[in-house]
Design a protein around this nucleic acid. Structure first.
Lengths: 158, 158
DNA sequence: GGTAGGCCTTCAAGTAACTTGAGGTTCAAG
DNA sequence: CTTGAACCTCAAGTTACTTGAAGGCCTACC
């Protein structure tokens, strides 16, 4: 059913409509079929592709890397193993990010707790915020795998 | 020991030197003391502050949000509870990101595995890449908490 | 003491990945 | 047939840096 409008696709994939047009412009997604009036129409394929793209973008994979994955995925056969290897690399990077994110979580938990005790009755004079939050935790230069790019989301409403 | 040069600070925190200067310029970190020749000198405080900043940036917290956390942290007393609340929000956002990142991890694992079987002997004609990777997994519009901004890292060497 | 090389300085321009805005068109509902 | 939401294009703005040019400082070796 290639009857989906850009807004529908946007809703289904959690993307802004201008972003979809932008992706088309830079050739990350193929140029959509147009209706008589010039409006874009999409199908289920497009939902899948865009879902994958957004998921990767969320976690900072740069567009060019996603492009290579997606185009590999598009050519059937020939490059299946290549795609697998690329995904493996992605996977390793994701796991690195997971570890780091957990470290940040721990830091924050510790901080909130210490804040609870320290400032219990009301704001105290020294919350040791930097002490608690910014502990070295091992590494300095992160060797963050392939991560780059923005991974941004819309600001929340409230 | 406030004898650290900008390059040392950079190495210790995993930041590029121009980025440090940039942070100073936008007032995210205080203007560093200068030596006679005009070179910046830093101390341990600066390492802590920058470590915290970079950690948050890694996971997409926008600079303005980090700025409010850091300046809260800097004024002792008065705003300890405020800082705690802010960190709580950060924590919630981090946990959301953790969940999503785990979902992406699972997708990738599933994909790599299916690739291993499907393309076992060599590249096959249909790897179901999009099928496997871009499964809906529940939500569409993510409501990702506070995340925005870029969270970028240097590209890896290899 | 001079000079090579590596660090540092400022300032300006470039980049990625969008977002926002202006100004106009299309289309489904009433 | 009109109205209003959703669409279109094109241009400019934004965030968070990165890269480059043109030069200054500083340690080390000859």
């Amino acid at each position: 059913m290639p009857g989906m409008k850009i807004g529908d696709l946007a809703r289904r994939t959690g993307t802004n409509t201008p972003t979809i047009r932008y992706y088309e412009e830079i050739g990350l997604i193929p140029r959509a079929d147009r209706q008589d009036g010039g409006q874009r129409r999409y199908g289920d394929e497009d939902v899948k592709r865009l879902t994958l793209i957004r998921r990767c973008r969320e976690f900072g994979f740069p567009i060019e890397q996603i492009r290579s994955l997606v185009t590999l995925a598009e050519e059937p056969g020939r490059s299946c193993l290549e795609a697998r290897d690329l995904s493996r690399e992605h996977l390793a990077a994701v796991r690195t990010k997971l570890r780091e994110l957990k470290a940040l979580e721990r830091s924050l938990v510790r901080f909130v707790e210490s804040c609870e005790t320290a400032c219990a009755g009301g704001p105290g004079p020294d919350c040791t915020i930097l002490e608690d939050l910014a502990k070295p935790s091992g590494r300095a230069k992160v060797a963050a795998g392939m991560g780059r790019g923005t991974g941004r989301r819309r600001a929340r409403g409230s």
